[in-house]
Amino acid sequence: MGMLALTTLSRFRLPHYGLPAYFALALLAARGLESHGGRRLIAAHALFFAAAALACALLWAGDGRYFLESVLGATDVATRKSAAAGGAAPLPSFAEFQPLLGTAALVFAAGALATGGCALVGRRWALAARTRRATFIVLASMLALLPSVAAALGLVSTHRAVRALGLELARRARADDLIVHEGPLENSGALEWYSGRRAVIVDGRRSVLAFGALRPEARDAFWEEARLRDAWQGSRRVWVVSVRSPERSMVAGLPGARLVAASGGRWLWVNEPP
């Protein structure tokens, strides 16, 4: 519990930091059901499911602002990083999440009714039988929720994928064109895979993956804005994939900048060579 509390309170946590504590929590839950599997513990599960059902129903009925800003803003790393940088959250529209929230509300409501019924009717059953039924209901509810969780993850990953812009670069960029990525490259990790090109990184030193960016041999891989400006006004065609919105991107202020495409919270720019 101490590990889980520590990772929960940390401002620099990532969602997977608390995973080592999950095994201990599972053992504690099993021990609790085995030793204290009475109606009170089952009723506590029913109350939790009811509260979760109510929360999902309220989010489903809302306009989505609280869900996108507060719920995902607290749990999603990319959303928190975008907010810290002053950018828009790279998330699908709330309308795409809404059916999943409705499904989750129904699953939690069914779990609340089933566990509540088990707690109320369970006085006729032996302790072991009541515990087995309650355990089955809890597991069934969690398993029924997994498809909605997977669908939500699929929505977010598809929306954030760099595949569209990478394939656009592979189709349109010539062999002698310069490919540039504005911002930390971990925000577009598959860009090189889809485009087949190695990108120069501009303003990407403040990054969890840029621990070697300050070494002398990294000079040609990590550029500053001035070097991009010189290349932009040169004779080569320059393509820039930016994770920053046009009003915050350094590319928007460069002469002749033309926005070619936008997808997944990224923008593809190209210059107009003389």
Rank of each mutant, 00 (worst) to 15 (best):
F136N: 10
S93P: 12
R130H: 08
T115S: 15
L72F: 04
A226R: 03
R172Y: 05
P273A: 02
D220I: 04
R244E: 01
G196V: 00
F12Q: 13
H159M: 13
G122H: 02
R174Y: 14
W193L: 13
P246R: 06
L58S: 14
T75Q: 11
A161E: 06
L228E: 00
L41D: 03
L120F: 05
E247D: 13
L228P: 03
V149N: 10
L209G: 07
G189F: 09
H159Q: 05
S207Y: 10
A109G: 14
G18L: 08
A161L: 07
Q233G: 08
P92L: 04
V149R: 06
Y17E: 15
A199T: 04
T115G: 07
Y194E: 07
G234Q: 03
P147Q: 06
L228T: 02
A128P: 01
R11W: 12
W193E: 12
A105P: 01
R197E: 09
A89D: 10
L101M: 03
W223Q: 04
G32V: 02
A126S: 15
F67Y: 11
G196K: 05
G62R: 14
R244A: 01
T158N: 13
L191F: 04
R65E: 12
A44I: 05
V180P: 01
A105Y: 01
R163L: 11
